[in-house]
Amino acid sequence: MAKGILKFNKDRCKGCELCVVVCPKMILKIHDYEVNAMGYRPISVTDMDQCIGCGSCALMCPDGVISIYTEEVPAK
């Protein structure tokens, strides 16, 4: 299964949790203590290894916080 690598632009995050509820693996979480430049608690990931790279979180994010990448599979 393809593995996703999430990158967050945390200073844009407003902590709305829309990505948290659409994640099928439930690995996204609002950060417990970190606060960003706008004063919101930004999003964080609890277990990156479980990410399947489905893109739902990025699709749902209104603020363009999330970018998703995957490892290149070498051609056989």
């Binding site: 996703g4 690598i5 632009n9 200073d11 844009r12 407003k14 902590g15 709305c16 949790e17 829309l18 706008m38 919101y40 790279g53 893109g55 990025a58 699709l59 209104p62 603020d63 363009g64 999330i66 970018s67 998703i68 990448y69 995957t70 490892e71 290149e72």
Partner: peptide, 22 residues
């Protein structure tokens, strides 16, 4: 690394004034 999703270049790289979750 291969891209799955990146924020579009059609949006300027600034924060919006919209409320959280809008």
């Amino acid at each position: 690394m291969k891209k799955i999703f990146e924020y579009t270049k059609g949006m300027l790289p600034v924060s919006t004034h919209y409320c959280p979750g809008c």
